[in-house]
Every structure is written in C-alpha cells, then in structure tokens.
C-alpha cells in the first residue's frame, strides 16, 4: 500500500514539476521545479527498490547540479531574461506561432508513438518474472559495490578521468581571461 502511495506521490511530483519546467517563464522557478522533478524521480527509484541510486540522485543533483544551475541563473541575470522567452501558451492575440505549433505537434506525435509501442504486444514478449517481495526490501549497496569494482571497473575508472577533465575544463572555461576582459574594458572606454 505504501509503495503505491509513494509511487503516486512521486509520479505526480515528477510530472507536475516537469510541466512547470516547460511552462514557467521565470527560469529561477523552472530550476526549482527541476529540483522537484528530480526528487520525484528519486522517489520512483525507491519504489523500484534502488535505494543507493535514489540517494545518489539526491546527493548529486540536489547538492551539485541544481545549485550550479541556480548560480548560473543568478550570474547571467535571471529574471531580466523572462521577457525574451518563448510564450508557448500565450493565447493573445495570434494563438502561438510556428515554433510552438511545431513543438506541440512533434511532441504529441512522439508521445503517441511511444504509448502505442508500449501498449502494443511488444511488452508481452518480455519474459515476465515474478517479483521477489524480499528483493524490494533488500539493500542493493553491497552488490552494487562488488559490481562496480569487478565487472564495471573500467567504466568506473574512466568516469573518474571524465570527472577530473570536466572539473578542470569547467574551471578553465569559466575563468575570466585577463587579456580579453581588459580589452573589453578598453573598448567600453572608447
């Protein structure tokens, strides 16, 4: 029963927040809505018995990515930009424009195709296993640790190199370059 309750709550949070990300014109609010959506997905992971993945999702996204996004929004002006955003559901006076219509049509078509594919017999070809109820409660922590350092150790090591590269690259890219900034200042003075 509580798995169902958690499932419903997480689903509602995920989907509603994702819609807010799409529709809200204030990008700061969109970031917070993304946070809600990510927390909802962590809840969905919990209903699937993936406790470590859920905690990692919270840890990385809440503690890292969303804060980075908020910083970026703040550093790039945030609310001043609102007026320039595309008004997808602006009903006055021309009922949207070509972009919004094409986006709507493409999205609806894709969604319809996916739903059609899901309800088609393709799903029944997957061998349906009975789910061990103990498996829901069991922790995945020990097994994940073993897998990461045995079967997937190469990907594990490569990801560490990737993170190092991303860290150094981001630091170098975002660092204000002395020569260009001084030239920008001189051009402003002129």
């Amino acid at each position: 029963m509580f798995h169902k309750l958690l499932f419903i709550m997480s689903t509602v949070l995920t989907v509603a927040s994702a819609l807010v990300v799409l529709l809200n014109k204030n990008i700061m609010h969109a970031c917070i809505a993304l946070l809600g959506s990510l927390i909802g997905i962590a809840g969905l992971y919990l209903t699937l018995g993936a406790d470590f993945v859920a905690a990692t999702q919270l840890m990385v996204y809440v503690g890292g990515v969303v804060i980075l996004m908020l910083f970026a929004v703040m550093l790039t002006g945030g609310q001043d930009f609102v007026s320039k955003t595309q008004k997808l559901f602006d009903l006055t006076p021309n009922m949207g424009n070509a972009t919004s219509y094409s986006v709507g049509i493409v999205s609806a078509a894709l969604f319809g195709m996916i739903i059609y594919g899901l309800t088609e017999s393709s799903l029944s070809s997957i061998p349906k296993k009975d789910i061990d109820p103990n498996l829901i409660e069991a922790s995945t922590l020990e097994r994940l640790g073993e897998l990461l350092l045995t079967d997937h150790v190469l990907a594990f090591e490569i990801s560490s190199v990737l993170l190092l590269g991303a860290l150094v690259g981001a630091a170098i890219i975002a660092r204000p370059d002395r020569s260009t900034s001084s030239s920008a200042n001189t051009s402003e003075e002129q």
């Binding site: 992971y45 990385v60 990515v65 790039t76 897998l147 990907a155 690259g169 975002a174």
Partner: peptide
C-alpha cells in the same frame, strides 16, 4: 533483476553532473 541497470544509472548521473558543470561554465563564459 540484476543490478547492471543501476550501475548504468549511476554512470548516467556522473556524466550528467560533468555535462552540467561544463555546460554551465560555457554559458557563464
């Protein structure tokens, strides 16, 4: 029902974090 999907998800999260860091650095620059 094995955990390979979980491992893949962990790597997706790692790559997403790296992507967000570099992407936002480019945006700010």
């Amino acid at each position: 029902q094995d955990l390979d999907g979980h491992i893949m998800t962990l790597f997706i999260i790692v790559v997403a974090a790296a992507e967000a860091a570099v992407g936002l650095a480019i945006v700010i620059r």
